[in-house]
Design a protein around this nucleic acid. Structure first.
Lengths: 233, 233
DNA sequence: TCTGCTGTTTGATCTGAATCAAAGAAGATC
DNA sequence: GATCTTCTTTGATTCAGATCAAACAGCAGA
C-alpha cells in the first residue's frame, strides 16, 4: 500500500496515533481495496480473517437468525474501523451500503502490529468504547421506543453522522442529506417493518417536519420538533 | 487498598495483565468498597468520575428516557470491569442487583495508569470488544426476537454466565440457579413488560421445560428444548 | 412508447404483547 | 399469629405495529 500521507482519513482514522515510520510499517501490511454496493466483506460465523479502515463509503454490520430475520447492529462511516481484532470468529456480517474504499489488513498481522504499538491500541480502545456507547443507546431504542421515536432518532443520528463525515462540501449537509439506507434497511436498523417505516416517514412529511424530495433524500424542516419526537435526552 | 494477591478475581479481572510491582502501584490508586443491593454507584448523565472491578456481586447497567422507561443494557459479574474510561460523562447508571464488593478507582488516575501500562489497556480492549459483541447480540434479540425466544435466550445466558462466575461450588449450577433479576428487571433487559415475562415463564413451566421452585430459582429441565426455543445460532 | 422490474406507498385486517384490573403468595413488622 | 407491603400471577381488553394485499412511481431496456 502506498501513500498513507495523502490518505483522506490519515488524521481521523486510528492511524492518527502513528508516527511516519510506524505508518510506513503498518502500510506494508495492508492493501487498498474497492468494494461495490451490496458486496459482503465478512460473513457472520466465518473466521475473523480481516480488519479494515474505511477510506470512503458506508457499510452495515448485521446479524441474523437462521430463518432470515436480520438486525443491522451498526452503520460504519469513513475513518471508522471494522472487524474483530483478537477474536477467532466474526459474529456479524459486513456489507457495503455504497461503493466503498477500504484499507484492509489480515487480522493476525494487524493484531501483532497493534500489540507492539500501544498508541494504536489506545485509539482502537477509544473507538470500541464509543461504539459500545452507541450500541447501548440503540438497545434503549430497540427495547423501549415507539415507531415514531425510532424514526426521528434515526433521522437525527444520520444527519449528524453524515455531516461529521463531511464528504460533500455542501453548506446545508446537516439538514438535507441522502440516506445511505433504503426502507428495508431502515427497518432492519430500527426493528420495524418496511411498511411501518414508510408510514412513519409519510406522516412526518405530512406534518411538515421533514421533506422527502426523492426516495433517498431527506430534508429536515423542523429540527426542534424532530428532536422532541425522538425523545432523546 | 491491600492484599491484591489474595483477591479472588486477581487472575480473571483485567489486573491479571499486571506484574506484582505494577499491581502494587495500581492498588495504591484504588480502594475496596462494599455496596448494598439497590445502591446506585453511577448516575446516567453524571460526570464519569469512577471506574471499578467487580470482586463479588452482580450489577446492572441501565439507560432511561425522561418519562421513566428504562432499558437494562448490561449485567455485570465478578471480575468484570465497569465505568467509562477516557470519557467525560457516563451515559448510563450502574446499580447493584445484589450486595457487592468492588475495587474502585478514580477515572482520571485509572486513565493515567492505563495509558502507561499497555498490557492493562490490552485486557481492557479485549473486554470491551467482548462487551460490544454481547451488546450486538442483544440488539438482535431486542429488534427481532419474539417474547418466548427472548425469555429462553435470557435463561440460557444467565445459566452460562452464572456458572462461569462459579461462586457456588454446587455441582449443578448450570441447570439450577438463582436469578439475580426480579420479574421487572427481566422485562427491562428483554424489552418486555412484567406481565409478559411472568406469562412466558408460567408457560415454560407448564410445558415442563423449566421448573420454578421459588420466585428467584430456576431449574432447566429440558435444556435442548430451551435452546430450540431461543433460536440462537 | 411500451414493458418489466424494483422499491415505495397506502389500505384492510390481524395479532402478539401492552395495558388495565384484580386476585394470590411470600416475606416483613408488630 | 394477624396485618402490611411488595412481588408475582392470571384474566379481560386494547392497541401499535405486523401481516396481507394491491396500487403506484421511477427507471432500464427493448
Amino acid at each position: 500500500m502506498q501513500d498513507c500521507y495523502q490518505c483522506v482519513v490519515r488524521n481521523s482514522a486510528i492511524c492518527a496515533a502513528l508516527s511516519h515510520d510506524e505508518l510506513d510499517a503498518l502500510s506494508r501490511l495492508g492493501r487498498k481495496q474497492r468494494v461495490v454496493r451490496g458486496q459482503t466483506l465478512v460473513w457472520e460465523g466465518d473466521d475473523a480473517i480481516i480488519v479494515a479502515n474505511i477510506i470512503s463509503g458506508i457499510l452495515k454490520v448485521s446479524m441474523s437468525i437462521s430463518d432470515g430475520r436480520e438486525q443491522i447492529v451498526g452503520v460504519v462511516f469513513p475513518a471508522d474501523f471494522i472487524g474483530r481484532p483478537f477474536g477467532q470468529k466474526s459474529a456479524y456480517s459486513v456489507t457495503a451500503l455504497s461503493d466503498a474504499e477500504l484499507c484492509i489488513f489480515s487480522r493476525s498481522s494487524f493484531d501483532a502490529f497493534a500489540r507492539n504499538h500501544p498508541a494504536l491500541e489506545h485509539k482502537l480502545l477509544q473507538r470500541t468504547l464509543e461504539e459500545l456507547d452507541r450500541a447501548r443507546e440503540w438497545m434503549l431504542l430497540l427495547g423501549k421506543k415507539t415507531a415514531t421515536e425510532r424514526i426521528a432518532t434515526l433521522l437525527l443520528e444520520m444527519s449528524i453522522r453524515l455531516s461529521e463525515t463531511g464528504c460533500s462540501v455542501e453548506q446545508n449537509e446537516l439538514n438535507e442529506f441522502a440516506l445511505p439506507l433504503d426502507r428495508q434497511q431502515m427497518g432492519d436498523v430500527l426493528g420495524l417493518t418496511i411498511e411501518t417505516v414508510s408510514r412513519q416517514l409519510s406522516r412526518l412529511k405530512a406534518d411538515g417536519v421533514i421533506g422527502l424530495p426523492d426516495r433517498r433524500m431527506v430534508s429536515i424542516q423542523d429540527r426542534r420538533r424532530l428532536q422532541d419526537l425522538s425523545t432523546t435526552a
